[in-house]
Amino acid sequence: MSNVKEKLLKDLAESVVDMEEDDTIEIANDFIESGYDAYEGISNGLAAGMDEAGKLYEEEEYYIPELLMCSDAMYAGMDVLKPHLKYDETEEKYKAVVGVVEGDTHDIGKNLFKIMLETTGFEVYDLGRDVPPGEFINKAKELGAKLIGLSTLMTTTMDNMEIVVNLLKEEGMRDDVVVMVGGGPISQSFADKIGADGYAPEASRAARLAKDLVRGKMNVAV
């Protein structure tokens, strides 16, 4: 294990935590020029930093503005590292469709969930904000997605989550797709009531749960 690599990974993570986007880009470039593996840079550098930022958020040290700046730094680092990824070396990727339900344009939670999903090994298609229920179904069908992630920050739009679940049933797709719901007003009991598969109060836990649920479903299918 090279000390140089460990140092760069640590610096990469720290630059994300410290919201220093320019530093993140510079360190990511150093990392690639030194010949290290981009995937490791993402998972043990950038994502580790984002994980740390998430912990600081849970500890009420960081808040949404700080998290957004961290995620900007992380995305800037991703832009440097992504082109160097060797896909055959990564594990099999499951496809996921995420979006903010119709009637809501707040996408902070959805963006964090998306980042966390990507770092746990999902290939994520982002439908964006204010997404009509039918679009989740169409895109999941088109991609053969194993996961649909629905987000909202507003109590007024929660009902649209149930509509997506019901549409999946009508299309006969419900057993093939894991449905995760999240966002400020969402709770475990709401998830249970509308028949969603999973909920977690914060993005990194939600992403880990998503992976477990999809793996569980795949194993049952086999």
Binding site: P185, S187, F190
Partner: peptide, 10 residues
Amino acid sequence: VDPSSIMYAG
């Protein structure tokens, strides 16, 4: 009182 899990879903 929780507007979601109690008022809406309870």
